[in-house]
Design a protein around this nucleic acid. Sequence first.
DNA 1: GTGAAAGCGCTAACAT
DNA 2: ATGTTAGCGCTTTCAC
Lengths: 348, 348
Amino acid sequence: MVGIDDVAKHAGVSTATVSRALSGRGYVSDATRAKVSASAEHLDYVVSSNASSLASGRTRNVGIVVPFLSEWYFSSVVEGAETALLRRGYDLTLYNLTGGGDDRRSVFEHFLLRRRVDAVIAVSLELSDDEVSSLHSLGKPLVSVGGVLPGVPSLTVVDSAMTSLSTEHLLSLGHTRIAHIGADSAFDRDFKVPTYRRKGYEQALRDAGITPDPALFRAADFTMKGGFRAAKQLLGQPRDRPTAIVAASDEMAIGSILAARDLGLNVPGDVSVSGVDDHQLADFFGLTTVAQFPKRQGERAVELLMEHLEPAPGSAQPAADLSSAERVPVPFELVVRSSTAAPKPSTA
Amino acid sequence: MVGIDDVAKHAGVSTATVSRALSGRGYVSDATRAKVSASAEHLDYVVSSNASSLASGRTRNVGIVVPFLSEWYFSSVVEGAETALLRRGYDLTLYNLTGGGDDRRSVFEHFLLRRRVDAVIAVSLELSDDEVSSLHSLGKPLVSVGGVLPGVPSLTVVDSAMTSLSTEHLLSLGHTRIAHIGADSAFDRDFKVPTYRRKGYEQALRDAGITPDPALFRAADFTMKGGFRAAKQLLGQPRDRPTAIVAASDEMAIGSILAARDLGLNVPGDVSVSGVDDHQLADFFGLTTVAQFPKRQGERAVELLMEHLEPAPGSAQPAADLSSAERVPVPFELVVRSSTAAPKPSTA
DNA sequence: GTGAAAGCGCTAACAT
DNA sequence: ATGTTAGCGCTTTCAC
């Protein structure tokens, strides 16, 4: 196993110089740097991250904690973060809380504390105050993606704004009987996302002078099947059928489209449907939706962390910035496809 | 930052004893062990994994390399592996090769070599000989999931057997005009999975005395949209329409179901459809499919690695076993739902 | 700009 | 069963 002194010997310099040349910290003449790089390359030298971390206190590794992995949103955030980290020479250690209870405890009490990470990204995770402070007390930068954590910079879309947007889109097309498929508070895991999305829908209606009709709301579990069932209820009504459905997620929206087809209804002819996410299947189903960009969110989280892990020369108190920027808004955008259109002139 | 000597002091023993008591290697009396554990707990002590790794050479960290993350199969394998590792006190470092070219090189040339992992799991990755040997030369155990790597124990289903199975299922229901949607070799990334699946279909037909008809094959890209398009071609034929479709993936199978509906055909009345995977959406669509269990595959990969990272007392040459067990078959199973049925008696 | 040397916090002989 | 001690392979003062 070739070590730093092999390189030093080969290059005819000291180990200190090798370290400086390769890590970029401290002064090394260009000539020396080149010589050292050549030797390192020649010998296939790679630093031992353990030794390096032990000596420097930096691990060049970031932990990311997710509640699930096999859902589109989460795996996309992770993918974005991973790409951004890789590019900067960092590793990504994944902690998946799927297991629940004990697993979760052990992640916080042992894993993250093993001093193996420089920073932590929490994705759509509601952390207890204890958990947040245990992270803070380690002096590890922490950012949240997809949910607001008290005292933690949080990259997150304004959920209510997304459904307001799609509701407004439908209103502007001339719809007035607009239904909503989302979830009531019983389904509120993850930061009350469902509730906020429902509020956005209701607000948009009110702003247009329409009182939200409870009969036009159906709770569902954010899956395609759930959306399918809910839409069946909504669209099966023999009279006063809604002319549009605002679903709180693309999967539910797609379920709604399938339900409409099942009932012999044409989308968007008889009913318009919109979703939220811009899921990979949205395009195939021609779904109008409000896109959020989870990969981008993962990348942004990394950028934010980097400002604090590797502050640009000339910034003063980076740590202060981090905790002050409580909420970092992330972009979203209406993507209009073929599942929404003006309602048919009421020939009834 | 409380260190090992704080614990030693508090417990009134030497650091060596603390290390032994906490790691479980070497002899410690029960009484001492209890005392040390209590002190460690009391002081909120957690080992520095870097110091520990540096001194011992073990990292308690496993690298997993995947080509994509936001696909169901990959994220499921990772999830399974992560759960299994967490349970054993290991971390999981994720390397995502989505980026392609340069990223890939750097993963192999730098990241994995930083001595940060004890072992590597490669998921559906075709590694070059150089890459395999660079891993081998590090003495890191390597297992492959979802594809066979030369000289590497590989957890993988026999792809041809999966499509044989679903084809036989359809044959046994009485179908004879059975189409296949898969991919030709042009789409062969990942170990020629598409080709093997096609071969399984053809073999089952031949075994039943039927010559595969090239007109009943359509290439697609493994997506729902691709399956949809291919099925439209197949099912749009005015005459000699197939009565069944064997798709090489669930997404394509679901696309086929939607195409059939679009054409006014009833599934399974007019056409039966089967897939491969048991994707999360399979149940919703009532899809008959051949399930593989990616989470389980991830767990098994970890179990295999553990036999070599932490050999049970009394095993001789574990490393030898690992490289000798070239192909470790993993289970798969036919899941019959409502998308397949006997063909209608040909009233034509 | 470069080198010498003192650790970083643990583990593993070895000794007892 | 427990203590002593020499590293593990780097980074980083501090001199020069």
